[in-house]
Design a protein around this nucleic acid. Sequence first.
DNA 1: ACGCATTAGTTGAATCTTCAATTTGTGCCT
DNA 2: AGGCACAAATTGAAGATTCAACTAATGCGT
Lengths: 153, 153
Amino acid sequence: MSEPRWLDASQQRDWRAYVDGSVRLTEIMDRDLKARHGLSVSEYEILVRLSEAPDRRLRMAELAENASQSRSRLSHTCSRLESKGLVKRDSCPNDKRGVYAHLTEDGFDALDRAARDHVETVRAFFIDAIDPKDLEAVGRAFSLVLKRVGATP
Amino acid sequence: MSEPRWLDASQQRDWRAYVDGSVRLTEIMDRDLKARHGLSVSEYEILVRLSEAPDRRLRMAELAENASQSRSRLSHTCSRLESKGLVKRDSCPNDKRGVYAHLTEDGFDALDRAARDHVETVRAFFIDAIDPKDLEAVGRAFSLVLKRVGATP
DNA sequence: ACGCATTAGTTGAATCTTCAATTTGTGCCT
DNA sequence: AGGCACAAATTGAAGATTCAACTAATGCGT
């Protein structure tokens, strides 16, 4: 019941800048991807992680983990992606409970096209907006956040 | 149709760290606020902005802008907050189209309680995880992102 | 003062996400 | 082998968000 340790003025400013900036930024990314390629950011992320996996396929649970999504959400989103023909699911030989999601050719092509535009947006609103030293600091900062969060399941 | 300028390895790392870190972080904030106070992050943000406004009230459009939400989303969310008794809306004397949203006493109390816990979570997973110099860099970085994004309506 | 483009805000339907329950299968323990 | 706790994935309903359409009021230009 003690008085909480409030943030000091500069911590407050930094936290707020991050909160506001990141909300606006993802909104832009989302609009852009949706308008130009009909993909939401979370669909895009799924395609990215699959494209980087060996054989372009992953177990659902692993994909959920990589893409920072709940399993349920991934199931639903995968169904949509599957009906668009970008992803295919089939069952896993070893573990009969398991399911592999993998990129189709169309999925790979769609990702390739989307990524070309997406990278320009990332540059325009993030990379090019930030001083290179600060960008490295952002990287360090969020790696540590990630670590901290990861230690809390 | 030219080859896009892909990110170099360290830009890639930094961008990814941010994307993953921020998704996980907001997920934690959301769970925490919801579990302990029955508020989503976006509801919380609305209460915060109202609490800081003169007379604890704002026009809907201004509130939407401050809280980085679409007007439509704000309308829906405000309806929920209103039915919880945390916010009240009444019409604006000058501009008959206009609506003021303002914090109720209950709303202020709920925010006060939530903020005390929230600040601890922000510390635990963000402020305390990051080197102070890097935190400042994050603040600078996202202020610029915000500026860049703001110039694009 | 009239007309008309613009702004404030809300609404309902479609879409997406979360939550809790369900199904199916694994693997340990005895 | 039988029983049982646990893990993988999906499902459907409830809740939240987006999108487009709508109402109502303002204010500018003539």
